[in-house]
C-alpha cells in the first residue's frame, strides 16, 4: 500500500507511518540543502528575535509549517516566459544537515524531511517529539523525480546561494519515497548499520 500525503501534513497522518512504508507526496514543499540550512538556523533560529530577511521568514513559515524540506540541488532550466522548470532533481546526502535539522523541524514544525542516506539520533529524536518523518528518495533518480515536479512556485536566494543551494519552492504530484525514519523512534538506517556491522565482524573478525 502506498500512503498518499498532501501538504500540509497533520500529526495523525505522521503517526500512522512506520519505517518501510512507501509514500507518495503531493502539494507544495521546498528544497533546502547546506547553505539554506545554515541560513535558516543562523538568521531565524539561533537568535533572540529574527531581525533580518523578515519577508522571507513569513513566506518560509507558511511553506514549512506542516510542510516538507527536500534535500536537493536541482538542475533547472528557464522557460521563455521567465518561469523555471526542474530538469533533474534527485536527493542529496542528508547527514550533512544533522547539525541543523532538529532545530529547523522544531522551529518551523516541519513534518517531512526528504533526502538520502538517512540522518542521525538528533533528527530521530526531533521526529518523535515534533511528530515528523524522514523519507528516503532514490538517490540519483533525478529525471524520474523531476517528472513529479509539476511547477516551480517560487525561488528564493538563487543569486546569493547559487542554483543548487537556493530555496526552490515546488508543487509536486506523486513524488515517490520510502519512510526510513519514523516518528516512533525507528530508523532503517540504524537497523542496516547494525546488521552490516555483524556481517563485517564475521568477515574480518
Amino acid at each position: 500500500m502506498i500512503h498518499e500525503l498532501t501538504f500540509p501534513i497533520y500529526d495523525d497522518e505522521i503517526t500512522a507511518l512506520h519505517v518501510g512504508d512507501q509514500v507518495s507526496l503531493n502539494g507544495v514543499m521546498t528544497t533546502a540543502r547546506d547553505t539554506a540550512h545554515k541560513f535558516l538556523v543562523e538568521t531565524y533560529i539561533r537568535t533572540d528575535e529574527p531581525k533580518q530577511e523578515l519577508e522571507l521568514y513569513e513566506e518560509l513559515k507558511e511553506i514549512l509549517g506542516g510542510g516538507g524540506i527536500y534535500h536537493c540541488g536541482p538542475v533547472v532550466a528557464q522557460n521563455e516566459d521567465g518561469s523555471w522548470r526542474f530538469v533533474a532533481a534527485g536527493p542529496t546526502t542528508s547527514i550533512r544537515e544533522e547539525v541543523y535539522e532538529p532545530e529547523v523541524i522544531r522551529h518551523f514544525n516541519v513534518k517531512a524531511v526528504i533526502g538520502k542516506g538517512g540522518m542521525g539520533p538528533n533528527t530521530l529524536r526531533a521526529n518523535q517529539e515534533q511528530k515528523a518523518v524522514y523519507l528516503s528518495a532514490i538517490g540519483g533518480a533525478a529525471s524520474l523525480i523531476a517528472d513529479a515536479v509539476k511547477e516551480v512556485v517560487a525561488v528564493y536566494k538563487k543569486d546569493e546561494f547559487g542554483v543548487p543551494e537556493a530555496f526552490w519552492v515546488i508543487r509536486v504530484e506523486g513524488f515517490p519515497a520510502v519512510v526510513t525514519m519514523d516518528a516512533h523512534g525507528r530508523s532503517i538506517h540504524d537497523d542496516v548499520e547494525a546488521e552490516s556491522k555483524k556481517q563485517l565482524t564475521g568477515l574480518i573478525g
Binding site: G20, Q22, C72, G73, P74, V75, V87, A88, A89, G90, T92, I138, G139, G140, A141, A142, S143, L144, I145, A146, D147, P176, V178, I188
Partner: peptide, 27 residues
C-alpha cells in the same frame, strides 16, 4: 525496498536517455 529502489533506478535511466536529461542532478 531493495528491489523497488533498483526498479526506480532503471526506470530513471530509461527516462533520462529518452529525454536527454541528466541521470542524476549531481553531474
Amino acid at each position: 525496498a531493495a528491489k523497488g529502489a533498483l526498479e526506480t533506478i532503471l526506470r530513471n535511466v530509461a527516462l533520462a536517455r529518452e529525454q536527454s536529461t541528466p541521470v542524476c542532478q549531481d553531474t
